[in-house]
Amino acid sequence: MSLKKALAAATLVAATVSAPFAMAADKVRIATEGAYAPFNFIDESGKLKGFDVDIANALCEKMKADCTIVAQDWDGIIPGLMARKYDAVIASMSITPERSRVVDFSEPYYSNSLIFVAPKSSKFSPKSVDGKVIGAQRATIAGQYLEDNLADKVTVKLYDTQDNAYLDLASGRLDAIVSDQLPAYDWLRSEDGQAFEFKGEKIDIDDKIGIAIRKNDKLREKMNKALQDILADGTYDRINAKYFPFSIY
């Protein structure tokens, strides 16, 4: 075989192999947790719903990407991203220096603060927490806040899901929980949350929520562009209004 023929054959093979990839819409696999209402949760019919899921779908529409959204347990959600089980995490994840060492983040898509939640009947105050038992979800900003700021004064209990922390607050094993303010706001309005209230002022920790993407993945630019688009054309505001009567951006 002459060199020319060989080159031609190689080009043909390359073209055949790469063609299907070039033609199909980009496939993007997105993970969310599915246990963090109203941002991401699984409804009665077993479907993923919530603010994060709506945002993910809106972004995919702008990116013209073919997206699949999967549920993934929280404390394995970054390892799963790094192991290429999916390409992005849209799960109300706070942008932190620790996480930024292992993954890249998009521009923030909403802001969060922390707050204490305790029973209405309790005299609990964030000003005097000595000796109290306080819970939070493991591997969250709230959990880190507890460990970093209060570990020497209180007993810290860490839960696999926010729901389990709520259950133990209801059972009386916990004096209070530290939680992200927005999902707690939603829970307090629910039937289960009737006997509880916010205690003290919200704790502003400059907590920005972003989309996690593997380091140096080009998907980040596309996500940022799509985010700008939905902020500009009112899609974001419509989704926001579905869940909260005030802007959370």
Binding site: E98, R99, L158
Partner: peptide, 11 residues
């Protein structure tokens, strides 16, 4: 182990 991993991301 899980609590440490939550801080270090080294599963």
């Amino acid at each position: 182990a899980r609590t440490i991993i939550a801080r270090t991301y080294t599963p």
